[in-house]
Amino acid sequence: MSKRTLPRLLQTPAVILLLLWMLVPLSMTLYFSFIRYVLNSLRKPEWTTPALSNWRGFGNYEYVLYNAKDFWFAVQNSVFIVSSILILTVILGLALAMLVNRSFPGRGIVRVLLISPFFIMPAVNAVLWINMILDPVLGLNGIAVSGINEIVAGLKNFPVIGAFFSMWPEIVPMSFRATQTSAYAVIIMVTWQWTPFAVLIFMTSLQSEDESQKEAAILDGANAWSRFRNLTVPHLARPIAIVVMIQSIFHLSLYAEIEIVSRGNGNKNLPYLIGEFTSNNIGAASATGIFAVILANIVAIFLLRMVGKNMMD
């Protein structure tokens, strides 16, 4: 056995498995996206089995782009949800990481409390938030708002200040089950879950910051803001890029949260739209799937350019 054979042999199973996992289903999707293929059709029973004779060319793509009213909405919503989560988690993550990056009593416990949401399974996360916290009647949202309303109603009977409070309208709790608001609910719950991840990464990175450089800056009379601006921010550029990249990978395929929060109310992202098509129109589902792959690749190429080069160091 030559020196090169053994290492190659050791890598082979992993490479073959991943190659099959990537190529087989994806090439099937590609094939289905070019044929007419539905699961139920009384009028055209021949369309219910995948066959080359049902070739449709780019017909499915055209259908998805021009006729399926939800496609652009789903793309827009995917981008909206992902970018909102990214912005919120990066800002919150930076703020919290700075806050915890100093020693104080109980810091270990604070860290444990902060990181916990990350380990919640997505299904539990969604059920917990949409039912017990955000529900406008039974959740804490509803209970808090009706509590405030009661207090205001009580204050109306007082002399003098009563006149002021009687001008207050009754507050109506926000419902998170409508099309647009359920997207907010998804953003809230995923931000809650992923901020800890950003905190962890920024914290790890802050700890490796060069302290002597900072002290030199203090001696030179640099104020806190300019130290943050000129030393900390450049140091954090890479971790920020990594947080953005990894979260994009995960959130572009967000599914369980949308399924639980928004089933049937019209709010959807690309994976959810594909799921809807899959209940009958496989051709359209596959074409949408290819669009999703393209979108993911654009994001991936863009982000890997940003961070990929020095990832191996």
Binding site: L26, M28, F32, S253, Y255, T278, G289, V293
Partner: peptide
């Protein structure tokens, strides 16, 4: 690779 893209296959 988005999982949903290969759901049906």
């Amino acid at each position: 690779l988005p999982a949903a893209a290969v759901l049906y296959p």
